[in-house]
Design a protein around this nucleic acid. Structure first.
Lengths: 173, 173
DNA sequence: GGGCGATGGTTTCATGGGAAACTATCGCCC
DNA sequence: GGGCGATAGTTTCCCATGAAACCATCGCCC
């Protein structure tokens, strides 16, 4: 790379006589902006769910998926990890918490003795009915400043970025 | 909230006869997309720096800032926390590592006995000369698919989002 | 039907990162 | 000039997260 190679060793403070474009203004570094924005948004959502339901993000995700499906039969943890795109450990922990709080029960799975079918309880369903609206409300508030066109542009860019990052990371060693 | 209140209790599997818009397709939830994209990008950068320099993200950030400034005089950790927008603990840990690896030294700060002035060593400077180019190269590769206009739109949207999230989180209790 | 590799789930371990507690120094104010 | 609240840095503690190890069951294949 040759964008910069200023050889400053010591001398004069004050007044940038160096190459500012190649320098450390982190706030202009897009991956950094992406990161802090994502953190801020996550923090907001986490905080809202914590305050209103005492739920953490993995937990409400599970509730959302369980509540959604046309499945009174329930889902296995495996299916939940697929649907939530979370780690299986995270799913397991979330399920454990939800079970302890009586929001979910585990019914035996006739089709496979290794797994159980997770189903929302009455309490779980009543929370479920507030969980998604809160998510949507939050999303709406966050993106209120953007036109639908902008929103979809954002989506597209994020998706592209993610894919590209995934490719690049594969191509490393 | 009133966006949905489907009262599904049991019955038919197969075929979504329920309200799919109010449902759990997490991949379409923008905060989620934001999060996984950010993670993918961070992972890429972390991996590149780890492979090439054995540096973690907080460490290269410190190097970048130290290497940038027109300061052979060095910076205090306080100044670094400001410049990197990281936690002071994170900065401290990064500095400790860098010092142990001989990339940075701590000179006494005449102006304030509580702090030291951190300066890149020769080795530190030689890494510095590769650190920023790698960041820029990575940024360039990531955003190669986007026009400058799109990039700046993205920046603007992210900034707006972050601000909005910050405001909303304040307005909670 | 008895291995045996694959798979769902659970537990354990290591790592990262932040909050809070603690120390040393500073900058005031009396 | 001797407190005393504020600030820079450091250490400690705690939590979240993911990887790896582990256990039970499944689905085959012989």
């Amino acid at each position: 790379m040759t964008l910069e190679s200023h050889d400053r060793d010591d001398s004069e403070p004050e007044s940038p006589g160096y190459d500012e474009t190649a320098s450390s203004d982190l706030t202009q570094f897009l991956p950094y902006q992406l990161s802090i924005t994502s953190n801020a948004v996550s923090a907001l959502i986490a905080e809202r769910y914590r305050k209103r339901f005492g739920l953490k993000i993995p937990e409400w995700r599970v509730i959302a998926v369980l509540g959604d499906a046309a499945l009174a039969d329930g889902l296995t943890q495996r299916a939940l990890t697929d649907a939530t795109l979370m780690d299986k450990v995270a799913v397991n922990r979330a399920c454990k918490v939800l079970e302890e709080r009586g929001l979910v029960t585990r019914a035996p799975n006739n089709a496979d003795g290794r797994s159980h079918l997770l189903v929302l309880t009455k309490d779980g369903r009543s929370i479920r009915d507030e969980v998604m609206p809160l998510a949507q409300e939050t999303e709406r508030e966050l993106f209120a400043g953007l036109t639908p066109a902008q929103q979809s542009a954002l989506r597209t860019m994020l998706e592209g970025l993610r894919e590209r990052a995934g490719n690049l990371i594969q191509a490393l060693p």
